[in-house]
Design a protein around this nucleic acid. Sequence first.
DNA 1: TCCTTGACTCAGA
DNA 2: CTCTGAGCCAAGG
Length: 151
Amino acid sequence: MLNAEASMFTLPLPKAAREIFFSQVWLIARQVPPGKVTSYGQIAAFIPAPPGIELSQHQAYRARWAGAAMAAAPEDVPWQRVVNGQGKISQRPGAAQQRQLLEAEGLAFNPAGKIDLKRFGWAGPPTGWLREHGLLVPPEDPAASPQPGLF
DNA sequence: TCCTTGACTCAGA
DNA sequence: CTCTGAGCCAAGG
């Protein structure tokens, strides 16, 4: 155990791996259209483990690495469209501005400060785009695609 | 060199 | 719905 008290810990990402990973986060974040949001974890799930990083470590930390990437995002990245997996804005200085920007794009927040991801959640990039950029294509939900020939 | 500092998510109870 | 625990460190001042 490490740092248990002050909220949450860690992000072990060596410089070389970080450069690759961050640029992929930004690439995906730039695809999120106005009026939609995605989450740190959803973006991160499209990105393969960077060279030299264990898969288990990647899976444990990639969402927080995505957060770190957004903190360092270039001007042209719509950082406000990335929220946490519960549909809430992660608490930090700048959170108020994020909410303001999203409301200006037409997003609605419930009294708990939560966005309805069924309504405003982004489906993610098209499969072809993901493949072109060397990103991971998520497995299809078998229940979502009806079998041809079956009633 | 020591110390601080970190935009997360998921499963279980 | 809320709450907990687990994941287990590299940079920069």
